[in-house]
Amino acid sequence: MNEELLDMITNKINQLTDEETVTEAKMNFHKPMIILPADKWTLTAAKMLRDDEDLRFDFLTCITGVDYEEHMEVVYNFYSTVHDHYLYVKVTTPREEPSVQSLDPLFKSADYMEREIYDLLGIDFPGHWNLRRIMLDDDWEGHPLRKDYITDKKAMGLD
């Protein structure tokens, strides 16, 4: 049943632009997962996922940023309170000037979670109403969860 859902999601997203937007679609631990590049991840696509009668992914549960050293990824975990099904959306972005469309205009739950990713990984979210640091000080330098971040041991009292 979940495989059918995966096909349906992939088709619907590809239909939006009449091209192969989804670079990879697979099952990840029994849940559908689609992977697409950041320039193809638009508010239109997210709105379709939320409002389409068969999909209705109305609950944005979790947003994760991951640094893979060659590139970066933002993973969205959706849940549908209407149909009770799940979806992973993986958005890939280059490591130099990483940028992913913000979902804040559609899902308010993205507000804080995207700010946290911006703070700790330095990924930009154009369209966010208030993209500022949330955990660290405003004048903090660097983004700690990046793999090349050098921990200032002296400042932490470890040296």
Partner: peptide, 29 residues
């Protein structure tokens, strides 16, 4: 990589774990 959830007293707690096959996690969200 996997996202696992549970119901804590405050709401849904989740862990997004990414493993690269080594003995330390690549990312724990």
């Amino acid at each position: 990589e996997v996202y696992t959830r549970a119901e804590a007293s405050k709401g849904e707690i989740g862990v997004y774990a990414v493993s690269n096959g080594k003995n330390k996690p690549h990312r724990i969200k």
